[in-house]
């Protein structure tokens, strides 16, 4: 592998990493604060992408469509939380698995009815369509750099929200000790709804940005969801910092897992399996994840 290819793949890995982080940040908080399994998080990623496809059609602008789609998914998150998930917080995990599994079936079918069964290809916005020679001799797509930049900016924004604001303080307290937040006399219900909708918006952002890179299709959230699980397991439930570190690791390992085996003549099977092997190794060493307090 040449140094140039190595750098290019590193950027690809980081870009996948920040996308995974956007997914994992919201989900790890839902897990940590509500102690709730949400399989439907991938559906929100998918809904975000489909909303964006529609809004691009209406407005003709990706840059208008993106905030609209994120906002729409935020509202959808509010609705889903209030109508369905709220009643599940106190229930056991099996109930949550089943109910959110039902939501996945619902959303997949809904998309099929509204948008049809055919995949949608989203164009890279014109302003970001070129390549830039960030490293001499290796032109890299501007759009992917933009995704990376947005991801890092959101990560920084989340850090600020969680480390520096009162809401963030409550979220942190909730993630490490649920009883305590109740004892503080905070309106828990509103906090939960807010956290869930915020997670939905972040997932939608990831989905919208992934649209032009991959393809907008039914079930696109499923494989992302499972990779997100791997991120959360490695990072530790409820830890934003863990999610960030693990997302970058998983993104990089997954990307190189696709390139490296071929270079050494190894079977392609290793590619898809690399992150799961990594997860198994981390778990064996630290059952609660890298930054997790409890297993």
């Amino acid at each position: 592998m040449t140094a140039l290819l190595f750098l290019e793949q590193t950027l690809n890995g980081l870009q996948l990493g920040v996308t995974l982080f956007l997914m994992a940040a919201g989900l790890t908080l839902v897990f940590g604060i509500m102690n709730m399994v949400n399989l439907a998080h991938g559906s929100l990623y998918m809904m975000g992408a489909f909303f964006a496809a529609t809004f691009v059609g209406w407005t003709g602008s990706f840059f208008l469509a993106l905030p609209l789609a994120v906002a729409a998914t935020f509202v959808l998150g509010l609705a889903v939380e209030t109508l369905a998930l709220r009643t599940l917080y106190g229930r056991d995990h099996l109930d949550q698995v089943l109910a959110t599994f039902g939501l996945i079936l619902f959303f997949n079918e809904l998309v099929k009815i509204v948008w049809g069964p055919v995949s949608i290809f989203m164009d890279v916005p014109k302003a970001l369509s070129g390549r830039v020679e960030l490293i001499p001799g290796a032109p890299y797509p501007v759009y992917r750099l933009a995704v990376l930049a947005v991801g890092l900016a959101v990560a920084a924004g989340l850090w600020w929200l969680i480390a520096r604001t009162r809401t963030g303080m409550l979220i942190r307290a909730g993630a490490s000790n649920r009883e305590m937040v109740g004892a503080l006399g905070v309106d828990i219900k509103r906090l939960y709804t807010l956290v869930f909708a915020l997670g939905a918006a972040l997932a939608a952002l990831a989905g919208v940005m992934a649209g032009p890179i991959y393809v907008v299709e039914i079930g696109m959230g499923d494989s992302m969801l499972i990779k997100t699980f791997v991120v959360i397991v490695i990072g530790g439930i409820g830890s934003i910092r863990g999610a960030f570190v693990a997302a970058l690791i998983v993104g990089t390992v997954d990307t190189f897992g696709r390139v490296l085996p071929a270079q050494f003549g190894l079977p392609a099977a290793i590619a898809e399996m690399a992150i799961y092997i990594l997860m198994a190794a981390v778990l064996f060493w630290k059952p609660a994840g890298l930054f997790g307090g409890r297993a």
Partner: peptide
Amino acid sequence: MIVFGPILLLVVL
């Protein structure tokens, strides 16, 4: 599926 998904949810609840 659009019927079955919510049915699942209701069964759980």
